[in-house]
């Protein structure tokens, strides 16, 4: 893997250039709430030590709310117009390994039978500039789902902080190489030994479960009481799904404009909501919160694995950190692991 060095000053020049070249640069908000479009070098927050934002950056590839068609009623027929989708050149700057993988993971479901052009138009052109992660708390469990704080998986370019002023820039993919080509002037030659040394010093979060074991247990213990125990206190707020970098459920609703026209919207939805599976008949196959929580766990650690050979979780710990009633997903899955 090729490695270069970029100084902090050059990084801001680089970002300014990207913005000039019509790239949409997305970076973590300094308040650590969500991700925002960067309008200039002053907004840059590339810090390997900060806590993952409350909400991941998935909204830029999988919008939280977006029109999928516009319609207008003309006498006996409908005029249907599809929204123009400009191909976006997105650049995610400073994605931690637990964020960097998210687009790849979601892309499997969005390209499984139906090719979701809303997702693809944004995701395919996007470049992920990852950064090695030096933050760790009790909620981090990336090592348990096959990632690590230093993995370049999912990133096209990967930054390693060398010292206060300099980053090592690893060129991970062909796309990354092509992307960085016009900006060579900001890079200087790197030395792999130093970044290796720094990366080796970063401590891994403890591995808490084996995903294959968990998946097998889930197959055989559909009615286990562990889910009801969580359901007892879960309030069904859906914060976990909305903050998650890979949760991808959505709902489709029509919104009228006036009596004859309107638009069809695609909005985020979450399996923790009581209405998520409520049928028109009034029957609800997932009646209790426990059953809904089981769906959350099983979708992440079994169904997605069975279907796409991928764990639908990056171990970022956002859902646990933000849960108003303190449910820790890693704790629940670790408990399952100990049962299996």
């Amino acid at each position: 893997m090729e490695e270069k060095i970029i100084s902090l000053d050059n990084l801001s020049f680089f970002v300014n250039d990207l913005i000039k070249d019509n790239h949409i640069v997305i970076g973590q908000d300094s308040k650590e709430i969500n991700w925002k479009r960067i309008t200039g070098a002053k907004d840059i927050v590339v810090n390997s030590k900060n806590i993952p934002s409350n909400i991941s950056y998935k909204e830029f590839v999988f919008a939280k709310t977006e029109p999928i068609i516009y319609y207008k009623n003309k006498k006996d027929e409908f005029d249907i117009v599809e929204p123009a989708l400009p191909r976006q050149k997105l650049v995610f700057l400073g994605a931690k390994p637990c964020d960097a993988r998210s687009i790849e993971i979601m892309s499997k479901v969005f390209n499984w039978d139906y090719k979701d052009k809303f997702f693809n138009e944004r995701a395919e052109g996007s470049i992920v500039i990852g950064v090695a992660c030096n933050y760790q708390d009790k909620f981090c469990f990336c090592t348990s789902v096959g990632l690590s704080p230093v993995t370049e998986k999912g990133s096209d370019l990967f930054l390693v902080p060398l010292d206060e002023k300099n980053f090592a820039l690893q060129i991970v993919t062909e796309r990354g190489k092509e992307f960085i080509q016009p900006y060579q002037k900001y890079l200087s030659d790197g030395n792999q030994a130093k970044s290796k040394e720094i990366l080796s010093k970063i401590k891994n979060p403890e591995k808490r479960f084996e995903t294959s074991k968990v998946s097998e247990w889930l197959t055989n213990n559909f009615e286990h009481k562990i889910f009801d125990n969580v359901g007892d206190i879960c309030v069904g707020c859906g914060q976990c799904a909305f903050a998650c970098p890979v949760c991808h459920c959505f709902d489709i609703v029509d919104e009228e404009c006036d009596y004859s026209s309107g638009r069809r919207m695609k909005n985020w939805d979450a399996c923790q909501f009581g209405l998520f599976t409520l049928h028109g008949s009034g029957h609800n196959p997932r009646e209790t919160q426990g059953k809904r929580y089981r769906q959350r766990i099983a979708h992440k650690f079994k169904y997605y694995q069975d279907k796409f050979d991928e764990v639908l979780c990056t171990g970022c710990g956002r859902c646990s950190r933000g849960c108003p009633v303190g449910i820790d997903i890693a704790e629940v899955v670790a408990e399952i692991n100990s049962l299996a």
Binding site: P67, Y70, P83, E255, C257, S261
Partner: peptide, 9 residues
């Protein structure tokens, strides 16, 4: 926001 509801033709 209401303008965005109008069909773009």
């Amino acid at each position: 926001i209401n303008k965005e509801f109008v069909i773009h033709e």
